[in-house]
Write a protein that binds this DNA or RNA. Structure first.
Length: 310
DNA sequence: CATGTTTCCTGACAGC
DNA sequence: TGCTGTCAGGAAACAT
């Protein structure tokens, strides 16, 4: 399942292969595509655009798009659970569950494949002359919904044809690879929720999912069920260091392939063989030899060593 | 606001 | 063999 290291690997792979290429056609699969932005808008924005930098923000792949006749925009790809973003030969057969195919000028294709359809595709950027009233229409719809609820909340991303605010896209979460120790501790200050649930909360921290939360907690010697507020300062330091370490090692090994994760070339990662607790229930702890246990926290299976983690 | 629960979706796998 | 049930989980939506 794609978390920060996997998304980083995919984004880097796509960047290296298709940056500078022009999109000559955009195809979308059945009408239940996993999209936030209307398919017609996606198609109009993508067709004719030149792909710029492709990078990662949190668990989202961000692709810069440039066009002569429109303001710069970005396509956002969230891989969800089983999403794959593949650079393929145009002649290669299409995998089942292919939801988007972008044909490139050189004959290759950028494909989005997602069996479970938890992934999301959307366009981020200002409205331009090329889009007419498409965005405005969706916005008034969102406004009506807001009115009906009698609140002044911002329309959700699902309501919008085009996301038009940087805050809406980036969210409030911090990047775990660059956050300071002080800011890291402050994220969890006073929170009664289990530390594992807090680590998974994207509004606090970007890009940490079930695998790396469990692995970081093991390296820090902290049980996943501990109340976040009760994790000591020293443990917090070990947690941040352990998290950065595990994320960096995973990026170096191309991510973890525990189900069907593959990179832009369809290659599996190798970090799964380095997992110390994740999906090792009943197997001996690599440090003390006692069996790894599994509990459910925040609706997610959480793996830990009852002896090494307090 | 903080936190907990449900929902979406398909493939893999266990058990009969 | 082929069916049924269970599980996996990111994050939006909903409930408390």
């Amino acid at each position: 399942m794609p978390e920060l290291p996997e998304v980083e690997t995919v984004a880097n792979g796509v960047n290296a292969r298709v940056r500078g290429e022009r999109i000559v056609a955009a195809w979308f699969g059945d009408k239940r595509e996993p999209m936030k932005t209307a398919p017609a808008v996606m198609e109009r924005v993508l067709t004719g655009a030149v792909i710029g930098r492709v990078h990662r923000v949190g668990k989202t792949v961000v692709m810069d798009l440039a066009r002569e006749d429109a303001p710069p925009r970005q396509m956002l790809v969230h891989l969800g659970m089983t999403g794959q973003l593949l650079v393929s030969d145009g002649e290669a057969p299409r995998a089942k569950h292919t939801h988007m195919v972008l044909s490139l000028a050189d004959g290759r294709e950028l494909r989005f494949v997602d069996p479970r359809r938890f992934g999301r595709l959307s366009i981020f950027g200002m409205e331009g002359p090329d889009l007419g009233r498409g965005g405005a229409k969706a916005k008034s719809k969102a406004k009506a919904k807001t009115k009906a609820r009698g609140s002044s909340r911002k329309p959700s991303q699902r309501d919008c044809a085009i996301l038009d605010s940087a805050a809406e896209f980036a969210g409030s979460g911090a990047e775990p690879l660059t956050i300071s120790m002080e800011a890291f501790r402050e994220l969890f200050h006073g929170r009664k929720t289990p530390i594992k649930a807090a680590l998974l909360n994207q509004k606090l921290l970007h890009g940490v999912g079930n695998i790396y939360a469990d692995e970081a907690l093991f390296r820090a010697g902290v049980r996943p069920g501990r109340q976040a507020a009760k994790v000591t300062r020293v443990e917090m330091e070990r947690l941040r260091v352990g998290l950065v370490e595990v994320l960096r090692q995973a990026i170096a090994l191309g991510g973890s392939s525990v189900s069907d994760y593959v990179d832009a070339d369809g290659m599996r990662g190798f970090f799964q063989v380095e997992h110390r607790v994740y999906q090792r229930t009943g197997e001996p702890c690599l440090v003390c030899g006692r069996p790894i246990r599994k509990v459910v926290i925040g609706g997610r299976s959480s793996h830990f060593c009852p002896h090494c983690q307090k």
